[in-house]
Computed example of a mutant assay.
Amino acid sequence: MGNFGDDLNPWLWPKLLPDFFNDDSSELLVGIGTLLNHRLPNDKTLHIVGSGVGYGQLPAVTDKWKVHAVRGPYSAKALDLDPSTVVTDSALLLRNVMEPTHKENGDIGFMPHYLSCRSADWENIAEACGFRFISPEWSVDKVFAEMAQCRLMLTEAMHGAIVADALRLPWKAVILGDHVNQVKWQDWLSTVDMQYQPESVPNYFYSAGTSSVNAIKDEVKRQLQSVGFGKSWYKPKPRNSSAKVRSDVCSQLSAIANSAQGELSGEAIQNQLILRLNQSLDALQA
C-alpha cells in the first residue's frame, strides 16, 4: 500500500488471529487506521478493533457493527458509541509479537507523513541533517529494522509515534505541512494520558522554478493527491530544495532534536491498554 499505518494490518493481524481469516467474506476486521468512515461496506459484519474516525464522512453504525474497541474518545463520541468502547489504537498489539527495542546511543529517526514524502525531498534533507530517514512508504519490516537503530524518533506520521511508543522508543511529533490531522492524534493520545504538542517546521514547499510541462503536471498531481485524489496515480517527483532551504530546514529540525526530551506514555497505562486490547481479541474469537 505504501502507508505504514495501513500496512501494519496485513502484517500484524494474521500473527494475532491466525484462525480468524478464512474464505468467509461476510465478516470484515476493521483494525489499525482511520478507517471508520462512509467507505465501510454495509452488507458485512464489521469487527471494529482499535480503529478511529478522522477522514471522510461519518458512517452509519448498524447492528452489523461489533465494536470491540475504538481508538479514542473522539471516535466514540462522533459515532455515539458507549464510552466503554474506548481503548486505544490497536497498533499497540505489536507488543504481543515484538519486544521493545531501541539503541540508547543510536540515531535520530525521521519519519514524515506519507504526503510529505510526495511533496518534498525529505530523504535528502534528513541525510543532510545527519538523521536516519524512515519512510512511511517502506515495508513494515524495513521500518521496524530502521527504528531499532534509533534513540529518538521525530515523526509527522501518527503511526510512527504509536509504534515508537509501543516499542518504548522516545518520540517527538513534528509538523512539516498542512495535511496533518491533529484530531486523530489527540484521539489516540487521550487514551495514554498525553497531549498533542508537535514542533512545527515552517511550511517547506519549494518549486525548482521550471515551467516544463512535466513539472506542471507533477505540481498539479501533488496538489490533488494532498487532498485525497489520485492515490493510484504514479508518485510525482519530489520538489527540489535549494542549498539554502535545505540548510534552513536542517537547522530547524536539528534544534528540535537537540531540545526534545522524547515522549513516552506511562508503562502502567500501556500495560493496562494491552490487557484491554487482548480482551477484545478474546471476545472476537469467542
Rank of each mutant, 00 (worst) to 15 (best):
N3P: 01
N3L: 05
P10I: 00
W11A: 01
L12T: 00
W13L: 02
W13T: 00
P14Q: 02
K15D: 00
D19V: 02
D19L: 01
F20I: 00
N22F: 02
D23G: 09
D23I: 01
D24H: 04
D24E: 06
S25M: 05
S26Y: 00
L29C: 03
V30Y: 09
G31L: 03
T34S: 15
L36Q: 03
L36C: 05
L36K: 08
H38Q: 14
H38S: 13
R39W: 06
T45F: 03
V53C: 15
G54T: 03
L58M: 06
V61C: 06
V67D: 02
V67P: 09
H68V: 03
A69F: 05
A69N: 04
P73H: 09
P73T: 10
A78Y: 15
T85R: 13
V86F: 13
T88R: 15
D89W: 10
D89M: 07
L92V: 13
L92C: 06
L93M: 13
L94V: 12
L94R: 10
V97F: 09
E99D: 12
E99Y: 09
N105A: 14
G106W: 11
G106C: 12
F110Q: 14
L115D: 05
L115P: 08
C117F: 14
R118Y: 14
R118H: 12
R118E: 14
S119A: 15
A120K: 12
E123V: 07
A126P: 14
A126N: 14
A128G: 07
C129V: 11
C129P: 10
G130Q: 09
R132G: 08
F133C: 13
P136W: 12
S139T: 11
S139C: 04
V140S: 10
E146Q: 12
M147R: 04
M147N: 03
A148S: 14
E156Y: 01
M158H: 01
H159C: 03
H159A: 00
G160R: 01
I162Q: 00
V163L: 04
V163S: 01
A166M: 02
L167M: 13
L169S: 04
K172Q: 12
I175Y: 02
L176N: 02
G177D: 11
G177P: 01
D178F: 02
V180M: 13
W185P: 03
L189K: 04
S190C: 11
S190E: 12
V192L: 08
Y196N: 11
Q197Y: 05
Q197N: 15
Q197S: 15
E199K: 14
E199R: 11
V201R: 09
N203M: 11
Y206V: 15
A208D: 14
G209A: 11
T210E: 11
S211R: 14
V213K: 11
N214K: 14
Q223A: 15
L224F: 11
L224W: 10
F229H: 12
Y234P: 06
K235V: 12
P238L: 07
R239L: 09
N240Q: 15
K244G: 00
R246E: 04
D248I: 04
C250W: 04
S251N: 12
S254Q: 11
A257W: 08
N258F: 00
L264D: 04
L264C: 09
G266A: 08
G266Q: 10
E267Y: 03
Q270G: 02
L275R: 13
N278Y: 08
Q279Y: 05
L281T: 08
D282C: 08
Q285G: 03
Q285H: 06
Q285C: 10
